Simulated scan of single mutants.
Amino acid sequence: MSGMDGQHLGMRLSTAVVAFHEAVGTHLGVTAVDQRAYAIVAGEGRMSAGDLAKRLALTPGAVTGIADRLERAGILTRTPDPADRRRVLLTANPGAYGDLLAGLGAAMSALTATYTPAEQQTIADWVTRTIDILREQTQRLTDNHPR
C-alpha cells in the first residue's frame, strides 16, 4: 500500500471522517450522536422517539434533547402519532444537512469516476467490509462496556 499499512490508512480515514462530521455538527449546532440519530431516522424512515431511543441505547430523555437540537437545526420534524397522540414521530428533513453533504457527494462522485468499473467494485467491497468490521467492533465494545 505504497508504504502505508491498512491500519495507518484506516486511522487517517477515520480521523478525516470524524473531523468532517465535527465541522458539520459545529455548522448545524448538533453533536456526533445527534448526527447518528439523524442518519438512523433518515435511513430507516419515520419512527417514534422511543424506537430511536432503543436503536441508540439511550434514555427517552436523552432522545428528547437530540430531537430538540435536530429540530432547531431544521433537519428533523416531530409530530404526534395519529394512532397514539402520546407518542411522537420523528421524520428526517435533509434540508441544511443535505446541502452540507452535497459538496462531499459531488467530490466523492468525481473521485469515483477516475477508477475503472473493476477498481470501483474492489473499492466498494473494501468499504462494505470495513463498515462490517466497524459495526462488529462497535458492538464488541458496547457489549463489554460496564454500565
Results as ranks from 00 to 15, higher is better:
S48D: 06
N144A: 14
A67G: 12
D84S: 02
D51I: 01
R36H: 15
V127Y: 02
L52F: 06
G25H: 10
T130S: 12
A124P: 04
L89E: 01
D5N: 14
R86I: 00
M1Y: 05
S48A: 08
W126T: 13
R78M: 05
D143H: 14
T77Q: 15
R87H: 08
T116I: 00
R129E: 06
M11H: 15
T142N: 10
A124E: 10
L101T: 03
E71W: 14
I75T: 12
Q35N: 09
R140P: 01
V33R: 14
A107N: 01
A62L: 02
A32H: 14
N144D: 13
K54F: 04
I66V: 12
L56N: 05
L134V: 15
G29M: 01
Y38Q: 15
L13C: 13
R72S: 13
R12Y: 06
Q35D: 14
Q137R: 13
V30C: 07
D34F: 07
L58C: 07
A73W: 03
L13I: 10
G61S: 15
A42C: 06
N144W: 03
R69K: 09
G65S: 14
T116W: 03
A49V: 00
L76S: 10
S14T: 09
T112K: 03
A106Q: 04
R135N: 11
H145K: 09
T15A: 13
D143V: 12
H8V: 10
T142G: 10
R78L: 06
R85D: 07
Y115I: 00
E119F: 02
L100S: 02
L90R: 02
A73H: 05
T114D: 10
R46I: 02
T138S: 12
L111Q: 10
T79R: 12
E44M: 13
A39T: 08
V18P: 03
A32E: 09
T130D: 12
A110N: 03
Q7R: 12
W126K: 11
G29L: 01
R36K: 15
P117W: 07
V41W: 04
R85E: 13
S2H: 09
T114M: 06
L141D: 15
K54M: 05
G43R: 06
H27N: 12
E44G: 12
P146M: 02
D132Y: 12
G3I: 01
D68Y: 13
Q137E: 11
I66Y: 08
G95I: 00
P82F: 06
D5A: 07
L56E: 07
T142F: 13
Q137H: 09
P80Y: 15
A37T: 05
H21C: 11
D68W: 10
A53Y: 04
L101H: 06
Y97R: 08
V30M: 05
G105T: 00
P94Q: 11
P117E: 09
I40D: 11
A110T: 02
V88E: 15
G50V: 01
D5P: 04
A124K: 09
V33P: 11
E136A: 14
S14Y: 13
T15E: 10
R69G: 09
L28D: 10
L58D: 09
L28S: 08
R85C: 02
D99N: 07
T130Y: 11
N93I: 01
I123R: 03
G103Y: 00
S14E: 11
L28W: 06
E119T: 07
T26Q: 11
D143I: 10
L13E: 11
A118P: 00
L111W: 08
G10H: 05
H21F: 12
R69E: 08
G25E: 14
H21I: 04
I123K: 01
